[in-house]
């Protein structure tokens, strides 16, 4: 079965992104496919390359990256939501004349159309939210 995961929750402040990660792992472990993980609203903060944690805690962005690498996952961050909140890749940094960029490797920025598209491709769409 093909799944699409939509993440609207940011790491740290709410549990939703953690739940989404565990669910995605369980989907893959059961032998199903994940067509795409789409990060929207505050969920875009899962795509930061600059999260730092004490040694006994794990960084959610790093865990998404590791999972994506292992399973060749498509991690898409909504570009409009991300740019407004200050998550940019090199291309967007140049477009907006920023000297720095912070989108983690393994994530890509794309439009909300990718959310619609992934719903069309999937047998099941599962959304993980924070607190609206």
């Amino acid at each position: 079965m093909i799944f699409s995961i939509i993440v609207q929750a940011p790491p740290v402040q709410s549990q939703g992104a953690e739940t989404a990660l565990r669910f995605t792992r369980a989907v893959l472990a059961a032998g199903h496919q994940v067509h795409r993980v789409f990060f929207y609203r505050d969920g875009i903060h899962n795509g930061t390359d600059l999260a730092s944690h004490p040694q006994d805690e794990s960084s959610l962005p790093a865990q998404w990256q590791a999972l994506a690498q292992e399973h060749n996952l498509d991690l898409v961050v909504c570009i409009a939501a991300a740019v407004r909140r200050g998550i940019v890749n090199e291309g967007e940094a140049k477009r907006y004349h920023h000297e720095h960029w912070n989108l983690a490797p393994g994530f890509e920025l794309s439009g909300l159309g990718q959310l619609v598209d992934t719903c069309l491709q999937a047998d099941r769409v599962v959304t993980f939210g924070g607190r609206s």
Partner: peptide
Amino acid sequence: SAARDALETALTCSVFEQ
């Protein structure tokens, strides 16, 4: 931002002819 995000999502569905 929920109201605006919901509207933008609906508009995007429509742009993609769904």
